[in-house]
Design a protein around this nucleic acid. Structure first.
Length: 230
DNA sequence: CCCTGATTCGC
DNA sequence: GCGAATCAGG
């Protein structure tokens, strides 16, 4: 399985959208969680609330006994030995500075509460790999009010005033037109169905019944030949 | 235990 | 460039 443009696009969107690497890997299929993380890092998009504490001011360069540790370098990663022997250097540095009262106590603010707290919320992704939220995430009622007919694509008049990523706000339809990365990729841009991220027309397409992640097999009939080609 | 992301390093 | 193995925190 290779990293095509679309797979990378989906990975990027989901990663930035707050999905976990496992979810992304599951969605993409054919790749492991580690592959997703590795790719994300290679793409340069990292920095997300990670469980491992963010060491700062300390040198983490004691991991693999980097430069020239005196002998005893296990080096090779064996397939299945027990834990790698030894963390060689305890690395003791006596904090010399007397004062340094560290007045950075209030700098811990992570504006990223974007995590499912065990809720069975269903998060899936639309045609362009864009976050698609369930109706319950917005406002419980409000029937999508299906349109009379579904026209293939007739959102904005011309591509001249097409809705770009920067033009998105919570009043215009975020339905992607085309594929990310393409020259004329844009968004629907219609006035949204109040309470939804899409216009009335695209709500009818976005909010089709989505099975839980486990029992989901055939992708729903999405337009534009969505990114998932399994 | 489970989960998470980070990192390393052989391929 | 890729990703399994590994690490490390929650």
């Amino acid at each position: 399985m290779s990293w095509t443009e679309e797979r990378i696009a989906t990975l990027t969107k989901m990663w930035e959208g707050g999905s976990t690497a496992s979810q992304i890997a599951d969605e993409l299929g054919g790749v492991s969680r580690n592959a997703v993380i590795g790719k994300a890092h290679r793409l340069g998009l990292k920095a997300r609330p990670s469980p491992v504490k963010a060491k700062d001011a300390k040198k983490p360069a004691a991991k693999k006994a980097a430069t020239a540790p005196p002998a005893a370098k296990p080096a090779v990663r064996k397939p299945a030995p027990k834990r790698e022997a030894a963390k060689p250097a305890p690395q003791e540095e006596a904090s010399p500075a007397a004062a340094a009262p560290a007045a950075n106590s209030g700098t811990n603010s992570q504006p990223i509460p974007n995590r499912q707290e065990g809720l069975p919320k269903i998060v899936s992704y639309g045609p362009g790999g864009f976050l698609r939220q369930g109706p319950g995430d917005q406002q419980p009622p409000i029937p999508p009010a299906p349109p009379r007919r579904l026209v293939p694509a007739k959102p904005s008049p011309e591509i001249a005033d097409k809705t770009s990523l920067l033009d998105l706000n919570d009043r215009v339809c975020r339905w992607p037109m085309g594929h990310p990365g393409e020259a004329d990729f844009h968004f629907c841009g219609e006035k949204v169905n109040p309470g939804f991220p899409y216009c009335v027309e695209h709500c009818g397409r976005a909010y089709q019944a989505q099975l839980p992640r486990g029992a989901r097999r055939p992708p729903p009939p999405l337009p534009f030949g969505g990114p998932r080609v399994r």
